[in-house]
Design a protein around this nucleic acid. Sequence first.
DNA 1: TCTCCGGACGAAACAAACTTGCAAAACAGA
DNA 2: TCTGTTTTGCAAGTTTGTTTCGTCCGGAGA
Lengths: 155, 155
Amino acid sequence: MRLDAFDRKILAILQKDNTTPQRTIGEAVNLSAPAVQRRIKRMTEEGVIRANVAVVDPVALGQSITIFVEVEVISETAAQIEAAKREFAAAPEIQQCYYVTGEADFILVVVVPAMADYEALTRRLFFGNNNVKRFRTFVAMDRVKVGLGVPVEGY
Amino acid sequence: MRLDAFDRKILAILQKDNTTPQRTIGEAVNLSAPAVQRRIKRMTEEGVIRANVAVVDPVALGQSITIFVEVEVISETAAQIEAAKREFAAAPEIQQCYYVTGEADFILVVVVPAMADYEALTRRLFFGNNNVKRFRTFVAMDRVKVGLGVPVEGY
DNA sequence: TCTCCGGACGAAACAAACTTGCAAAACAGA
DNA sequence: TCTGTTTTGCAAGTTTGTTTCGTCCGGAGA
C-alpha cells in the first residue's frame, strides 16, 4: 500500500521516539489521535513498522565492544551462502549480518563483553568453518552515530 | 548503578518489544507493575535505555539500498578526526558511523533510495573532502539480520 | 540483641493514553 | 452530478501508565 505524507511524517516521529503520545503526533501532523492510531495500526499490520524496541547502551550492560567483520567465503553456491546466513543469524553476538557485493561477501556487526569472547567467536564461526576464506576485523573505538532508522523524505 | 537480574530481564523484553504492557512484564519477571515502571524510569534516567524507537522497513519507504563504506583518512590528528565525525554524523543518509581500528578509520552504514543518491554522497563527502585517502563500497544484497540490541545475559 | 533508617515493594486510587462505534466529510469513478 | 468507498473527528469505553501510601526487609549503630 502507498504511504502518503501523513504516514511518512508519523514514521519520522516514531523512528525518533515511539513513546510519543498519539495526541502529540496528531498535533504535529494535523490529524486527530484516532486517525494517527489507525494509520499506525495499518502500517504495523502491513509490515512497514517492523518492530518497536528500546535501544540499550551496550556499555551499561558490560557488552562494550563493537566489532565489524568482513568475511569472504570460498564457495558461493546458493546452498553454501544460505548455510552461512543461517549460521551467522543464529549467533546472539552477531547483531547485524549483511550479504554484500564487493571485496567481501558478508559484513557482520558483533557486540561482545570482551575481546576474548570475540576470539571465541572467530574460532567457532570462522576457523571452524572451512568455507571461510578470509576475514578482516575492525574494532570500534567510538560509536559516532548509531541508528536503524530510515531517512524519511517527501512530506 | 548496578543492574540486577530483574533489570536485565526487563531490558531483554523491551529490546524485543517496548510496547509490552508493564503488567505483562511484571508477570514475566515476578514483579508488580509499579516496580517495573520504577525500574524502567530509573534506567531511562541513567541512560541505560537510550531511546525507544520504531523500526521501519526501508523497502516500504522506497529507501531500499543499504551500503557499507570503509573510509580511510590521510591525517589522523584529533582535530581532523573530530571534523570527520561531525560531518558523517550530520548526513541523514548515514545511519551508522563508527570510528574503528584496523585497515580503515571509519565504517559507515548508508541507506539511500537509489545508487544515484549514493554517488552524490560520495562526491559530497569523499571526493569533496581532501582528507579522505580511499573508500571502499559494499552494497548489501540481503539484510540477513538487523538489530541494534545488546545481548543480555546472566539472569 | 534491639532499634532506627533507607530503600524497595505491592495494593489501590488516579491520570493518561489507547481503542472503538458512529455519523459526517472528503474523495474517486461513472 | 451522483454514488460508493474511504477516512475523518468526536465521544464513550477500555486498557495502560503513574502516583500515593502503608508495609516489609536488610543493614548500621547503640
